[in-house]
Simulated scan of single mutants.
Amino acid sequence: MRAEADEVDEAIEAELRLMDPNVRTSRGLARQLLDPEFVEVGASGQRWSYEQMLAELPNMPGNSKEGPRYEPSDMTGVVLAPGCVHLTYETTIGGRRARRSSLWRKRSEETGWQMYYHQATPIPPEAE
Score class of each variant (00 low, 15 high):
1 M>R: 14
2 R>E: 15
3 A>Q: 14
3 A>C: 10
4 E>A: 14
4 E>C: 10
5 A>K: 15
6 D>A: 14
7 E>A: 15
7 E>F: 12
8 V>W: 12
8 V>F: 09
8 V>H: 07
10 E>F: 10
10 E>G: 11
13 E>Q: 12
13 E>N: 12
13 E>T: 11
13 E>V: 07
14 A>N: 08
16 L>M: 06
16 L>A: 00
17 R>F: 04
17 R>V: 00
18 L>Y: 00
18 L>D: 01
20 D>E: 10
21 P>Y: 00
22 N>I: 02
24 R>W: 01
25 T>G: 03
26 S>R: 05
28 G>P: 07
28 G>W: 06
30 A>R: 07
31 R>D: 15
31 R>W: 13
34 L>T: 12
35 D>R: 09
35 D>C: 10
35 D>F: 05
36 P>A: 06
37 E>M: 09
39 V>H: 06
40 E>P: 05
42 G>W: 01
43 A>G: 12
43 A>L: 03
45 G>Q: 04
47 R>F: 04
48 W>E: 03
50 Y>I: 05
50 Y>L: 05
51 E>S: 14
51 E>H: 09
53 M>D: 05
54 L>T: 09
55 A>C: 09
56 E>H: 04
56 E>N: 13
58 P>F: 04
59 N>V: 00
60 M>I: 04
61 P>L: 01
61 P>R: 00
63 N>T: 15
63 N>Y: 00
67 G>E: 04
67 G>F: 01
68 P>H: 07
68 P>K: 09
72 P>H: 06
72 P>G: 06
76 T>K: 14
77 G>V: 10
77 G>F: 11
78 V>E: 14
79 V>A: 11
80 L>Y: 04
81 A>W: 11
81 A>M: 11
83 G>N: 05
83 G>T: 09
83 G>D: 04
85 V>T: 10
86 H>R: 15
86 H>A: 13
86 H>F: 07
88 T>D: 04
90 E>R: 13
91 T>L: 06
91 T>K: 04
91 T>W: 03
92 T>P: 03
92 T>W: 08
92 T>N: 14
93 I>E: 00
93 I>K: 00
93 I>Q: 01
95 G>S: 08
95 G>H: 03
95 G>R: 06
97 R>E: 09
97 R>T: 05
97 R>G: 03
97 R>L: 05
99 R>Y: 02
99 R>F: 03
104 W>R: 02
105 R>V: 15
106 K>H: 10
110 E>M: 11
110 E>K: 14
111 T>G: 03
112 G>V: 12
113 W>Q: 13
114 Q>D: 09
114 Q>Y: 12
115 M>L: 15
118 H>M: 12
120 A>E: 12
122 P>E: 04
126 E>Y: 07
126 E>K: 06
128 E>Y: 07
128 E>W: 03
